[in-house]
């Protein structure tokens, strides 16, 4: 019988980023059809882990397989992965239109010495249609709202029909109603069968959409379904000892701790002022 293969498989992966251990002993598998969200505080190695998965950074030890291959030598298999970078990192003064930005998603597939053909342009139009931004096609990318920018880069990631979609903090710098639009969009893509890996620091929202959560704090603190993972123990490991979880309705919320040290410190300071 043909065995189902994980799309992403990491075994005991260690990564140093600028001589600092950023990812320590992470083992993780992402199976077809999953919606995995990688969460963790700033500097927890989430983005590093993502870059490793994309083959943008080498690992220092352990093993990583993407579609059964080494991510740094995947060749055309790379087209099976769509990537949405943090939209705040883009230079929006760059003279390029929405349509041409989306076309770029096909450049890797076309190969050297090839110019975009009619079929490629049609693919780009379909991606624009899917993201409902056809009317913006000829606009310069700076002349867009935050939500529209997200859709452009999502369209670029989708244009090559990926099986796996990887997003890095897609909602940074975007207001919350626009963010939930994006998450709904992701959910419908997921229902179409696309596997999604979403890096985020927004636990509450992520718990509502993802079916798998991986909590990173340099190590993989926990991995599993949201209900299993988002317990007090995990959160305290990630955000400090007194962080708690409040569940009302479907969405758990994280409650950050009253910091004992800080209050002690404040009392000290008060005393000093009194003296």
């Amino acid at each position: 019988m043909h065995k189902v293969q994980p799309l992403v498989k990491l075994s005991h992966v260690y990564v140093y980023y600028q001589n600092v251990l950023a990812v320590e002993d992470v083992s993780l598998a992402v199976w077809p059809g999953q919606f995995l969200s990688i969460i963790g505080p700033n500097g927890s190695g989430k983005t590093t882990l993502l870059k490793v998965m994309l083959g943008l950074m080498p690992i220092d030890s352990g093993e990583i397989r993407l579609f059964g291959r080494n991510p740094q030598s995947m060749g055309k298999m790379r087209q099976a992965i769509g990537y949405v970078p943090q939209i705040t990192k883009i230079d929006y003064t760059f003279p390029v239109t929405v349509f041409n930005t989306v076309m770029m998603g096909l450049f890797g597939q076309m190969g050297l010495f090839h110019w975009p053909k009619k079929a490629d342009r049609e693919k780009a139009w379909r991606a624009l249609e899917k993201m409902d931004i056809v009317d913006l096609a000829h606009r310069q990318i700076g002349a867009l709202s935050g939500g529209q920018r997200q859709r452009v880069f999502l369209a670029r990631a989708l244009v090559a029909d990926p099986k796996l979609l990887i997003l890095d903090e897609p909602t940074t710098g975007v207001d919350s109603s626009t963010s939930s639009n994006l998450y709904d969009l992701l959910l419908s893509l997921h229902q179409e069968g696309i596997t999604i890996i979403l890096v985020s620091h927004d636990i509450g929202v992520v718990a509502e959409y993802a079916d798998q959560i991986a909590c990173m704090n340099r190590r993989l603190v926990a991995h599993g379904r949201p209900q299993e993972v988002l317990n007090g123990e995990v959160l305290s490991c990630m955000y400090g000892p007194e962080a708690g979880l409040v569940t009302h309705g479907a969405v758990p919320h994280i409650v950050l701790p009253r910091h004992p040290h800080r209050s002690a410190h404040l009392i000290d300071e008060q005393r000093r002022e009194e003296e």
């Binding site: 994309l54 083959g55 943008l56 995947m74 060749g75 055309k76 790379r78 087209q79 992965i81 990537y83 970078p85 990192k89 883009i90 230079d91 760059f94 390029v96 930005t101 770029m104 998603g105 450049f107 890797g108 597939q109 076309m110 050297l112 110019w115 975009p116 670029r156 090559a160």
Partner: peptide, 18 residues
């Protein structure tokens, strides 16, 4: 097209296999 892509967004260019 390759030079355009790495000028605009080198990370994404690398991620698509350029």
């Amino acid at each position: 097209k390759e030079l355009l892509f790495i000028t605009f967004d080198p990370e994404m260019a690398a991620a698509t296999g350029l």
